[in-house]
Amino acid sequence: MDGISSGDAGVAVDRLWPGQPATITDLSGGITNRNYRVDVGGSSYVLRVGGKDTELLGIDRSTEHAASLRAAEVGVGPEVIDFLQPEGWLVTRFIQGRSVPPNEIRTPDGIQRVARVLQKIHGAAPIPGRFDAHAVVEEYRNAARAHGVRIPVEFDEAHRVSEQIRRARGMQPTVPCHNDLLNANFLDDGEIRVVDWEYAGMGDRFFDLANLSVNHDFELADDRLLL
């Protein structure tokens, strides 16, 4: 991600653990951020450094911090250790877990395990921020136009369908949602954990469920079990 350097990690580590020897390891997988494992003082942490201009995607690092705290509170996310301002760098406890491949999540047991995790998230106390799946794509379109990006011709039809869905469903209650349930954001340390809360906000729980389904190639039977 542009705007992120390994030097940022070194600066953050010096501020967090001044004078202590630390090992910094670059973790792969970040799209709008860079993640580092930091081993220091006999413990392991993850330092999360946000990318340049991510506010154009509606990302607010203070909201991410609050959502991460809530996720840890309900036993879904890693423990939050620190939050460095004004940069918005987040430090969490490193999870000694494994990735969970999509075919494992698609099993009946996998779907039930993830569903229990989502119930904890959606039943948690409110968090800052709002994520409206219909409005977000309009905001992205407007931001793209403002930066001279050509809008794909398929957008208009997709937007028309989105508006049909919005009207048909009407107003929905909002609950804490993750909104970015890519497979890479699930870890298993004996329990299913969810990381990367930068798109989190109060939203429609059914967007979270649909997001999980699409990102894991669920079949109709899988969707029915999830519901």
Rank of each mutant, 00 (worst) to 15 (best):
R15V: 00
L16V: 02
W17S: 00
W17Q: 00
G19A: 10
G19I: 03
P21F: 03
P21H: 07
A22I: 02
A22W: 10
T23D: 14
T23E: 14
I24M: 13
I24F: 12
I24Y: 14
T25C: 05
T25I: 11
D26A: 13
G29W: 03
G30S: 02
I31A: 08
I31G: 00
R34L: 00
N35Q: 01
R37F: 02
V38D: 06
V40T: 09
G41S: 09
G42R: 09
G42T: 07
S43M: 06
S43N: 13
S43L: 11
S44H: 12
L47P: 03
R48Q: 02
V49I: 15
V49P: 00
K52R: 14
D53A: 13
T54Y: 09
T54V: 15
E55N: 13
E55T: 11
E55I: 08
L56V: 09
L57R: 04
R61T: 06
R61V: 10
S62D: 15
E64T: 07
H65L: 02
H65E: 03
H65Q: 05
A67M: 09
R70T: 13
E73L: 10
V76M: 08
G77C: 08
E79T: 14
E79L: 14
V80D: 03
V80E: 07
I81G: 06
D82Q: 12
D82A: 15
F83G: 03
F83W: 12
F83M: 04
L84Q: 15
P86N: 11
E87R: 13
E87K: 12
G88L: 06
L90F: 12
V91T: 13
T92A: 08
T92V: 15
R93V: 09
I95F: 07
I95G: 06
Q96V: 04
R98L: 05
S99F: 08
V100K: 04
P101I: 03
N103Q: 14
E104C: 00
E104K: 14
E104W: 11
I105A: 10
I105R: 11
R106E: 04
R106V: 01
